[in-house]
């Protein structure tokens, strides 16, 4: 890693750790190795969203050209969001691609992702299935996102109905994670989900 990248990251990490406003917004970082190429980000689910109460982890990989190239950021916690792949956690966000600016920092990146959680952009989706559900069945989307938050991000909202459907598929020998994913993609229709898995 270049000298400029390493030194700037040191300053940024200090900024995130010492800034009290950041702890209030629920943003934290964890340094995974000494040369700062791999960092773990943590975002608290914003209030008044289906992600409220959840704690979402992100994998941040810093390129050698940083800050002239954007960091590679993806969710390691599974999340049901139109702009995040429900399978891989890849994020569709302009500042992580063509709209990156050298003045942006880890703090502004994490705040932007948190803002994206508040206001999804279904017209520019990363996951077309989630975006379709968000636009056509908002109530189902909200319930699904809340269920995923509880299931994968330590959220508090319990949904016994959805859990019963997952258990049904588990009894048929389907892995829990796959059951959740397939049911979510099929708007929690157990028949369509069963056909999808076993056909």
């Amino acid at each position: 890693m270049s000298n400029i990248a390493f030194n700037r990251l040191q300053r940024e990490c200090k900024e995130v750790v010492t800034n009290s406003e950041i702890s209030e917004t629920g943003i934290m970082i964890e340094i995974l190795n000494e040369n700062l190429t791999e960092i773990k980000g943590h975002i608290r689910g914003p209030p008044d969203t289906p992600y409220a109460g959840g704690m979402f982890d992100l994998d941040i990989k810093i390129p050698d050209q940083y800050p002239f190239s954007p960091p590679n950021v993806k969710f390691s916690t599974k999340i049901w969001h139109p702009n995040v792949s429900s399978q891989t956690g890849v994020i569709c966000l302009d500042i992580l691609k063509d709209q990156w600016a050298a003045s942006l920092t880890l703090r502004t990146v994490l705040l932007s992702i948190q803002a994206l959680m508040c206001t999804p952009e279904p017209k520019d989706p990363q996951d077309a299935v989630v975006a379709k559900q968000y636009m056509e069945k908002p109530a189902v989307f909200k319930a699904t996102a809340e269920y995923w938050t509880t299931k994968f991000a330590k959220g508090a909202v319990k949904n016994a109905g959805y859990q019963a459907l997952v258990d049904k598929l588990k009894d048929m020998g389907v892995r829990e994670e796959e059951a959740v994913s397939v049911l979510s993609c099929n708007n929690w229709d157990i028949n369509r989900s069963t056909v999808y898995i076993f056909s």
């Binding site: 270049s2 000298n3 400029i4 030194n7 700037r8 300053r11 940024e12 800050p67 050298a102 003045s103």
Partner: peptide
């Protein structure tokens, strides 16, 4: 400097090394 985060009247991070 918003790019290297060093005071403008000091040398930038690259030039310090």
């Amino acid at each position: 400097c918003a790019i290297c985060r060093v005071h403008l009247m000091e040398e930038c991070l690259r030039c310090q090394s």
